[in-house]
Amino acid sequence: MRFLRWGPLVRQVLLGPGHPGHAQGGGAGAHEAYLRGVSMRAEEVAGKLREALGPKALRLETPTERRVFLTVAVEDLEDAVRAVLGLSREARFMTISAVDEGLDLELLYHVDVGGTVVTVRIKVPKEEMEVLDISHLAPAAEFIEREIRDLFGLEFVGLKPEKLYTPEGYEEKPLKKPMEGALPPQARPMAEALMGSACSVSVSRAVMRKRQDLGLPAMPPMAMAKPEALEEVRSLAEEVGFTERAGYDLEKKRLRYR
């Protein structure tokens, strides 16, 4: 750790009193010995979080031995942060990253747990743009939450109202992207038709009349007539992740964007 080679005053500020790397005489060796004492490997962290959160832990990933990603629902954020901070006396809130994915705002809460970085991941749908403020659990979060609110327009419920970066009266959200999903405009009606009727296009009354003029049945031999088939189309779309990637709301039966 580079900062351990810095002067005693800097170490004192960064590590705080009582830390074995604090003040004079610590050195890299002492810090590593300290880490060995308090650190938890990713698998161990993941195991403890799984135990603490149960089904609220929607996904737990450990891509390296010092990295854990925990995905939870927006409403379980507080429980997840509390569980992560409770893993160790040394757990330290680092920061929050915000990523505008078009339809959702992804928030990544990073916490250092004795050398292993745990990231709690949530996705806030842009239709809601509201999430709980966690500064009562990690006071340092207030600063970055205000920054995210100024730049992306996300409301943190319970956060003090003062702006951080942007001036009073300036209401634009410079880092917020338009609410757009993966499908280009011309493809959207086709996707909605497919999910709504199992066919990419619907039959107009004019075409029905023309079909009858030609001696064809008004309703063509398409898949759309069968409700059970439609159910299969929708569940298949959900299963392979199409509804999420394309931004299709299965309950409202339409895309989340126009």
Binding site: M190, L194, A229, V233, V240
Partner: peptide, 20 residues
């Protein structure tokens, strides 16, 4: 022949979401 859905259109879905 009536399938469960239209083919679905490769002009759109094969390009935008191959797996689906």
């Amino acid at each position: 022949v009536r399938g469960i859905a239209c083919c679905p259109s490769p002009f759109m879905f094969k390009i935008l979401d191959y797996e689906y």
